[in-house]
């Protein structure tokens, strides 16, 4: 698969899911178990993405400047800072720690 192929297949899959909600009868998805699982699905995937993105490099567990950045992000989120502030602050913290050579 080329990167363009992957991009376009991903786009098609996401569009089909959106369109499905306009086509399938609502009662297919109204079960209690289905609604719990679909509510929790983004939580599981995003939490795993945070963990993998922050604490692994090429599959190995690694603690580096990203840990400090995540701590700063969590503190700012608990203070209700907005998305752009959180992302910028995390980048600045990681870049600064690397620039002074404290962590990789």
């Amino acid at each position: 698969m080329t990167m363009w192929g992957a991009v376009l297949i991903g786009c098609a899959a996401c569009f089909v899911l959106k369109a499905a909600g306009y086509v399938v009868p609502a009662r297919w998805l109204e079960g209690r178990v289905v609604s719990r699982v679909t509510t929790l699905l983004p939580v599981a995937l995003l939490a795993a993405l945070v963990a993998v993105q922050s604490f692994t490099t090429d599959g190995r567990l690694v603690l580096d400047a990203r840990l400090a950045a995540v701590v700063v992000a969590v503190v700012l989120l608990s203070l209700r800072a907005n998305f752009v502030v959180v992302v910028l602050a995390a980048a600045v913290v990681a870049a600064a720690l690397r620039a002074v050579g404290w962590v990789a």
Partner: peptide
């Protein structure tokens, strides 16, 4: 690290 923060947010 910005990517990590984006997923946190």
């Amino acid at each position: 690290a910005a990517a990590s923060a984006a997923f946190c947010a």
